[in-house]
Amino acid sequence: MRAGDRPAVAIAGVGQAGPVAADSRSIPEMVLAAVEEALADAAIGFDGVEAVVTASVDLFDGLTASNVAITEVVGAVMRPETRIAGDGLCAAIHGACELRAGACETVLAVAHGKASMAPHWALTEWAMDPVFLQPLGIDFLVCAGLQACALAQGDGGATERWAELAARRAAAGDAAIAPPRSAAEILASPVLASPLRRGMAAPLGDGACAVVLRAAAGGPGEAPVRIAGAGWDLEPHSPGERDLARWHGLERACARAGLDRTDPGLELAEPSCLFAHEEELFRAAAGIGEEAPLSPGGGLFAGTAPHVAGLSRLIACARAIRDGAARRALAHGAWGPAGQAHAVAVLEAW
């Protein structure tokens, strides 16, 4: 998605619930809290929402057509709602498509996830090829371990570097789910999927995110942040049919978003990295050097929720631009084993 003759898409309001380790609220209650915050931020009521795009995955909610649980709290009764089963950033990107298509003027994009409901990695087994992979017990965690192993080949300092990175990120966050630990503590933490240690994975919990998007013909007066580009991509599924040491899919997604690999104007990147090693894959694929601030608030290491991550990154970028901390930022979402699928949005100050 690039700028063109179609309406620009502004981020008019953002809202978040959590993430926390276990939210005692029901899914609709949690989602409503995020939605109310986003509507208030956009200074509109439910009546100002014309269409809704949600992101959630039935199996992770333990509920068939699980967006039925939140229809009324996202204001979708007697309105258009589309549910993208995938990362929350896709909800915002598809919402932006509806606006650019001229289908409506205001879209509410919502994502929710509750890792407290079930052992997360065990559920991911059901997203693996059931003929060749699932029967062996191969899930997203196993794939992350294989990927980390592939990356660490001939790189003696990899695990130390990942531990330091995870410690730095966790210290920058507000430690809503897991207490920050030193690199030494992380290296001594239990093995998760070798060579990954538990502290090298972002803590998963419960949360919801909501974003109000608006077709804006005018300019900076209407909203301070606009979506300047978006792209997404799906890689082959089988880890054996991919180069695990590179996120080619992210490279393609960035190119589609109009992002030059050495974009000098990029002042912030908010990747969805569930594991420390993924940040190195992200930097290489998105062409982001050490100078651009990356996850200043700790990224997912401050805590995240399944399928919410990408939308939470978009909110982090939008807030940074509104606060004047950056003028151009990259939000990233990922889903699938070892980064099989990626979505990115480029946000700009107006």
Binding site: A85, L123, D233
Partner: peptide
């Protein structure tokens, strides 16, 4: 869950943008 990951290749989706509606 997320069947596009596995079945998407059937729709020639590998290397392309792909979303799934449910």
């Amino acid at each position: 869950a997320l069947p596009e990951l596995w079945a998407g290749a059937g729709a020639f989706a590998a290397g392309k943008p792909c979303m799934k509606v449910a």
